[in-house]
Design a protein around this nucleic acid. Structure first.
Lengths: 114, 114
DNA sequence: TCTTCATATGAGCATTTGTTCATATATTAA
DNA sequence: TTAATATATGAACAAATGCTCATATGAAGA
């Protein structure tokens, strides 16, 4: 890595920090989770099933969106293993899968509310 | 709100959950912070100044991006009050402003590393 | 079997996003 | 004042995103 191309750069500080930067793959994984929560519609879906499971239609009602839009978003959340589902006849119930996401959400809720 | 348009909807459960959903403005604020961390390049910038302040050129070196790209991203992070800066002559040093973001990042780091 | 209901998915489209490139601003030194 | 350095910003553009609409799938009941 080219480190000394500018006068303002403190080589030691830069090398020190470079050592602490996670691998790109880890950064991408972190970013993926944040991206899942970064869209207000998708975040609202996650908030809707934070305390209890709901079927797709219920989530759509709670979020004021179409079933289709919710289903598309749930697919993204499923792929990222943020939500899980269980079938009961025709109805599919969704709930949160990732404990870490739950605490992240609760922390963020605390933040905006205080 | 139209709640009973479908058979599968449990009205009580929906009303219960609706009470717990934050105001739209709060949801948007939460989403904004997550969005700030949702792009790998921007997340890397935040990670670069997690432990110590750096100037724009140093951040660019650490992140392997141009000064301009970094500057554009820092503007977004500044607007969201995630980073702060101080001037020292020609050089501007950036560091993290929001304590809550710091713990969110550390939590996320823990998550991907274990 | 045929219909209905709940959910999923593909294509298409408008909007947003992140980068590049050129240029502007601000500070320091000559 | 002029030149050099560090940072900021505007325009432009390619890529990604979230929604709609049409259609498909899968389960239950008539």
């Amino acid at each position: 890595m080219e480190i000394c191309s500018k006068n303002c750069i403190n080589k030691e500080k830069v090398e020190e920090t470079v050592k602490t930067i996670p691998a790109q793959e880890e950064i991408n994984q972190m970013a993926d989770i944040f991206k899942a929560l970064s869209d207000p519609s998708r975040l609202k879906i996650v908030l809707a099933i934070l305390n209890q499971e709901h079927c797709v239609c219920e989530i759509a009602t709670i979020c004021g969106q179409t079933d289709s839009a919710i289903s598309h978003q749930l697919r993204i959340l499923r792929t990222l293993k943020i939500v899980k589902n269980r079938r009961e006849g025709k109805v599919i119930y969704y709930s949160l899968e990732d404990e870490h996401v739950i605490s992240t959400i609760n922390m963020s809720l605390d933040h905006v509310r205080h």
